[in-house]
Design a protein around this nucleic acid. Sequence first.
DNA 1: ACTTTGGAAATTATGCATTTTATATTGTAA
DNA 2: TTACAATATAAAATGCATAATTTCCAAAGT
Lengths: 253, 253
Amino acid sequence: MESPTSLTHGAYAELRSELLACNFAPGEKLKIDDLCRRFAVGSSAVREALSRLASEGFVVSEPQRGFRVAPLSVDALRDLTDVRCSIEALCLRGAIEKGGLEWQSQVVAALHRLTHTPVWADKAARRYSNEYARAHETFHEVLAAGCGSPWLLHLRAVLFNHSARYRWFTGPLSKVDRDLDKEHREIAEAALLRDSERAVALMNAHLQLTAKIVLDAVSSEREPAARSSRAKPGKAHAPDGPNLKRKRITASA
Amino acid sequence: MESPTSLTHGAYAELRSELLACNFAPGEKLKIDDLCRRFAVGSSAVREALSRLASEGFVVSEPQRGFRVAPLSVDALRDLTDVRCSIEALCLRGAIEKGGLEWQSQVVAALHRLTHTPVWADKAARRYSNEYARAHETFHEVLAAGCGSPWLLHLRAVLFNHSARYRWFTGPLSKVDRDLDKEHREIAEAALLRDSERAVALMNAHLQLTAKIVLDAVSSEREPAARSSRAKPGKAHAPDGPNLKRKRITASA
DNA sequence: ACTTTGGAAATTATGCATTTTATATTGTAA
DNA sequence: TTACAATATAAAATGCATAATTTCCAAAGT
């Protein structure tokens, strides 16, 4: 992990993981000089990393005007979730149809690891632990991998990573108690029993519930009781992005 | 088309269109200096363009070893085609369900333009005309756009563009006579009649036939008088991952 | 025949010059 | 005095040329 083959790739990987973890606020300006100092690399490396991230959709590039963190929006989350349900369903059906013993074993292993990894790094602050995030990612990855289609898995990974931004963004805000272990276990059981319909239904419910929690958290933060008037002080900073202006999610801290 | 907002974006667009048209042979080394001279820009712009294209999977980046044109392979084409069938089906069903009058009108218009655009720029050499390629792209684009899902349309576009490399690669080799106009017309008719099952079935046949023509052309070129052997090695990795070596398609010219 | 060593070429990284954009200041008019 | 506008200053992004590693290729030596 600490041996990136080039400075450019190292900067890319670091910046990407920080973006996925929402360490940068959506819509925030990404100044090249700041990033140069932060990662101790030249501007070429930073620019190249930003270009790649832009083509992946994690940052937006405004010509002659630099780069910004890609915005989050409730509309985009709804769309993303629906599409992700469709793609995960394709993966799951394929995996259940074609998955062999190797797949089954990996699913069992990934489930075990997931259910035995502590969820919270800081229970009070409700911050997800990196280990749990990792285990969660590999569980879903392994579950889908059985379909054996590189392209389908690639599309799935793209959607998963974009969902991750929303998940991390609202992680600490989550106030709903849900039995994540049970959800994951039931999905895995249905898949291993080759019950496609049930597995897909459970997966869809799983994804939609996660999205609903994020959406509820955002809307309750926007209009709790019209009390928080200090939510957006002077630096209101409403950059007119090219698309998805409506209902944009902004950072609250 | 002649007003790219920056040199970088201009170089990116040009190089991309040349890659899609297979003006560079798959697997070919892309030397930065050559590209600098060819596009009359600095190495920064070229490097940035290559980075973006790498993250889109059109070129592969080998650390400390530069960039190469992403390889083509029969396994990748088979997988790509299957996934594309699934995604186009999702778009089509969504469009048929949600598409309104505006969508219908655009489909009719795109079909008209498509069927009235000459297919070949050079009949003897069987080279597709750029106008036809454009009309063909917008027809499929418009047909899918009715679903109204930005993410789904994005995934569709990614797959379409990657298919384009295979299409252009084998364009001049195509020896099969097919009634493309009829295929497109029947798809559009079924969609406008809201016959999802028929539309999807026709679309799948359309895509699979196109792929089959490419595969036949390649195999007949490789082993002119031998039967096509269908092997399925299992270690095909993601498009931006390590390249798949087996059964790679190389340039014959 | 195989390994080692040398040189050439290409990629990678950095710093600087140029051009564009954003901000602040000042001046003018209502 | 306030509001608006034009200019000037500052900051940032873009592009390029050069420097420094690394890799590749070939020739020489064991």
